[in-house]
Write a protein that binds this DNA or RNA. Structure first.
Length: 617
DNA sequence: AAAAAAT
């Protein structure tokens, strides 16, 4: 290969470019690097490096996409050089690199202890790690639209997933794909961008991890701009980045990734705030092929130069609507648009969101290219194995009502939602005083406390968990028998997420909510949910709802489900705002537009769906 | 209005 001289000249050009400041020291402390436009980095040549004089390097990949630009020079791709791939300080890190030898994936040996840790031991053959009993999920309606939508798969082997991955999937007791996975796996495999309206519990994590790992297991590591590695400070070059709104959710995705990368060359990492950054940096050093992160901590690591996004093939935004609700948009845009992330065309982007409001549509327009829109029916609310009860309880009576409720039917795990962090603590103390085994999870507790609370709850050490919104969505806690909305949320979607924490795995669950005059705003949505799930509607609620509609506005648009649809359907096929085509001309073609629906219930009409909405679940 | 998230 004649790229060595090339290298040198590039280096010297770069050096000149950067040398405008003459002899004065241009050291930039790590945390200040990449502020401002010229993002140069100092990099100390490795000892064995024959190239001298090239101290400065442009951050790889910004304009040049996935190959790291002129620093994407590849060492010979042969014999025993596996450790040169994507490992900072090549000689120091070998363990997972050893699983990619001479262009082949060599799975590591089995490890009984690790296997038990990752997959656990389950006597129940129907046990499934995310609490889904698949047979009960077959009727979740899914609708896919966009250009050239791939046909959904029927099982994991139809276009086969990677062999090792299949073994791990079996270890995790997955038997067949969930409805989301049936659609998302071929979509991701085909390299398409995806916007999916789906909730946790639908199996969406596997929906993107499976095809992603299949591809990574097969293609192996790719070379990194080795010169960009400083000898002292190594850098992670993940191939896939998953952004999640909360630390718990990030951890959960990471744990799933650990299962499915067992014995493979791919090493997952997780970073989030509230935990010592040093440990996380060391983990990144040890190899970081898939990175799960909350936005704040990732930005921190990017600014410290510990992570480069130049090699990203896959970008996943999980719970995108929540991330925007939490004000993460600037940070997400910084990560995606202002660092060294490959451009839209040079990466594959998958967005998941429970709803599809206009700000998410804009994000989709900016981050996705010719995407497929997938909408997946709600898992929780449609399920009739959750008994929903609404009790009228004034605020001052809530404590005693709760005690009544608990003494009447507290068995298994009870999850209690409150609105404020203060109330979470106060109620937990109260319950402990009453000799209940209660613990709390909310944003003012330290990360360690949150983790302890969650694992105590999961392990039944504390069978009551009092939680704020931090636990409402996404958290996967199997076997919750009773969800109590001590305070009702103001957002009906939050309500659905909350009650969806129970009644999983085909078990029956109970959701009890304390309602009073402070909850007027949720009446309409609540009525719809209760009706949809064939639940009893208390008379005080139907009375209120009748009063509301008499006095107020009539419902616009006519559809029974409109207030909950949140525009979460593919606005592109409904004419939309027009902004779609105008900013991205390449997407304006309409020729191959199609829509594939699968698993639809047959009782659309009965459920109040007009024909106009028939393609939406 | 509250919660969450980088320190």
């Amino acid at each position: 290969m004649a790229d060595l001289p090339q290298k040198v000249s590039n280096l010297s050009i770069n050096n000149k470019e950067n040398g405008g400041d003459g002899g004065k020291s241009s050291y930039v402390p790590p945390h200040l690097r990449s502020r401002g436009k010229p993002s140069f980095e100092r990099s100390t040549p490795k000892q064995e490096d024959k190239v001298t004089g090239g101290d400065f390097f442009r951050r790889a990949g910004r304009q040049t996409g996935n190959n790291g630009g002129f620093f994407g020079f590849s060492k010979e791709r042969n014999g025993g050089t596996s450790a040169n791939y994507n490992r900072g300080g090549s000689s120091n890190y070998k363990s997972s690199g050893n699983r990619w030898v001479n262009g082949k994936h060599i799975p590591g040996p089995k490890n009984a202890k690790l296997e038990a840790e990752l997959f656990g031991v389950h006597e129940d053959p129907d046990y499934h790690s995310s609490g889904i009993k698949f047979d009960n999920y077959d009727d979740i309606p899914v609708d896919a639209s966009g250009k050239d939508v791939p046909e959904p798969i029927l099982d994991f082997s139809s276009p086969p997933l990677d062999e090792l991955l299949m073994e791990n999937i079996k270890l995790a007791s997955f038997t067949k794909p969930t409805p989301v996975q049936k659609y998302s796996i071929p979509i991701v495999t085909k390299g398409r961008d995806l916007m999916a309206c789906a909730q946790t519990g639908s199996g969406k994590t596997g929906g993107f991890l499976f095809p992603l790992f299949t591809e990574l297991f097969r293609s192996g590591p790719s070379p990194v701009p080795e010169k960009a590695q400083s000898f002292y400070s190594r850098k992670g070059y993940p191939y896939a980045l998953v952004l999640a709104p909360t630390r718990e959710l990030a951890t959960q995705i990471f744990e799933e990734a650990r299962k499915f990368t067992y014995r493979s060359w791919v090493r997952p990492c997780v970073v989030y705030g509230g935990a010592p950054i040093g440990n996380q940096m060391r983990e990144v050093d040890r190899g970081c092929d898939l990175l799960v992160a909350t936005p704040g901590r990732l930005n921190d690591l990017l600014e410290r130069g510990k992570v480069s996004l130049a090699n990203i093939k896959y970008l996943v935004l999980d719970e995108a609507d929540r991330m925007l609700d939490m004000g993460f948009e600037p940070q997400i845009r910084h990560i995606v648009e202002e660092c060294d992330m490959p451009s839209v065309e040079n990466r594959q982007t998958l967005m998941f969101s429970a709803t599809f409001p206009v700000d998410i549509q804009h994000l989709a327009r900016d981050f996705l290219d010719n995407y497929i829109f997938l909408s997946v029916g709600r898992v929780g609310s449609t399920s009739e194995n959750i008994t929903q009860r609404i009790l009228y309880v004034d605020d001052m009576d809530k404590k005693s009502a709760l005690l009544d409720l608990l003494s009447a039917e507290h068995k298994g795990l009870t999850l209690i939602f409150v609105e404020t962090k203060r109330m979470a603590d106060q109620l937990t103390d109260f319950l402990i005083m009453q000799n209940f085994k209660a613990t709390a999870i909310h944003g003012d507790r330290t990360q360690a406390e949150r983790e302890r609370a969650l694992s105590a709850f999961k392990a039944n050490v504390a069978d009551i968990l009092v939680a704020t919104a931090v636990a409402a969505r996404g958290l996967d806690i199997p076997n919750v028998t009773h969800v109590i909305n001590y305070d009702l949320p103001s957002d009906i979607d939050d309500y659905v997420h909350r009650i969806g924490r129970t009644g999983r795995a085909g078990n029956t669950g109970v959701a009890t909510s304390f309602f009073n005059s402070n909850n007027q705003n949720i009446v309409k949505g609540l009525m719809e949910i209760l009706n949809e799930a064939n639940q009893e509607v208390p008379t005080f609620l139907s009375d209120l709802s009748r009063q509301n509609s008499r006095g107020g506005r009539t419902r616009g648009g006519g559809g029974f489900f409109n207030s909950r649809n949140n525009g979460s359907r593919d606005y592109r096929k409904h004419g939309g705002s027009g902004s779609f085509g105008s900013t991205r001309p390449r997407n304006t073609g309409t020729s191959n537009w199609g829509s594939i629906g699968g698993g639809f219930r047959n009782d659309n009409e009965k459920n109040g769906y007009g024909n106009s909405n028939a393609s939406w679940w």
